[in-house]
Amino acid sequence: MIIKIVFDDNVIQYISCSTKVARKINCIQEDFLNWIFDEEQNIKYWALENGERSHPNYDANAVVEWLNNVRFKRGIAKAKLITNPLLIVKKTLYY
């Protein structure tokens, strides 16, 4: 299933994931935000200012990583970033 992720008017990305995951994506969005804002769990997606972490800096790659390695790490169906969706977008997330 294709999910459109809108970060702002200029940044729109798409991911592909299983139907099971896509159906839950709006419900688990808050879990993703808790993960991305957790400074201790997530160093990779934080912007640095003067050598200090200042705020999360992420895109759809972070969503894919979280789905595959944190939320559904035992699942077989993995999410992936896609550039040109050939199928119809079924869900849209706004960040």
Rank of each mutant, 00 (worst) to 15 (best):
I15G: 02
W66R: 05
D38Q: 02
D59P: 11
E52H: 12
A22L: 05
S16F: 07
Q13G: 11
L48M: 11
L48S: 07
K44Q: 14
N61C: 11
V63T: 03
W46Q: 12
N50P: 08
P56W: 11
H55F: 08
W46I: 14
D38V: 09
A60H: 02
N57W: 14
S18W: 00
Y58Q: 13
L67D: 03
W66T: 02
V21W: 01
Y45P: 03
R53T: 12
S16K: 13
N57V: 15
Q13C: 06
I15W: 00
H55S: 07
I28D: 02
P56A: 07
D31G: 09
N34E: 07
Y58K: 10
L33K: 14
A62Y: 02
E49D: 12
E39W: 03
Y58T: 11
D38A: 10
S16M: 09
I43S: 13
L48A: 06
Q13E: 15
Y45C: 04
Q41F: 10
A47C: 11
E49Q: 15
N26C: 06
L33R: 13
R23K: 10
F37D: 15
H55V: 08
D59H: 12
V21Q: 06
A22H: 01
E30N: 13
A22K: 02
I15V: 11
S54R: 07
A60K: 01
Y14C: 04
S54K: 09
A22N: 04
A47K: 13
F32H: 06
K24C: 05
K24A: 06
E52V: 11
V64N: 00
A62S: 07
Q13D: 12
D59N: 15
Q13K: 11
E49A: 10
H55Q: 12
N42P: 09
N34K: 13
C27I: 08
N50R: 15
D59I: 04
Q41G: 08
Y58C: 12
Q41E: 15
I25F: 01
C17H: 01
N42E: 08
E52G: 05
E30M: 08
C27L: 09
C17G: 05
H55A: 09
T19N: 13
Y14H: 14
Q41D: 13
N10K: 15
V64K: 03
N26H: 06
A22F: 02
D38Y: 05
A60W: 00
N34H: 10
K24T: 06
E65L: 11
I28C: 01
E52P: 03
G51S: 05
I25L: 02
W46Y: 15
A47D: 09
I36A: 09
N61I: 10
C17V: 05
W66C: 00
L67E: 03
E49C: 08
Q13V: 04
A62E: 04
V63E: 02
D59L: 06
I28M: 01
G51P: 04
V21R: 01
N42A: 10
N26S: 06
A62F: 05
L67Y: 00
G51M: 03
N57H: 14
N34Y: 07
E39P: 07
E49K: 14
K20C: 05
V63Y: 09
F32D: 06
I36T: 09
A60D: 04
V63H: 05
K20E: 08
W35E: 06
A47V: 08
K20A: 08
V11S: 09
W66V: 00
Y14L: 09
L67Q: 02
I15E: 03
A22G: 14
D59C: 11
A47H: 08
I15L: 05
I36E: 10
A22Y: 01
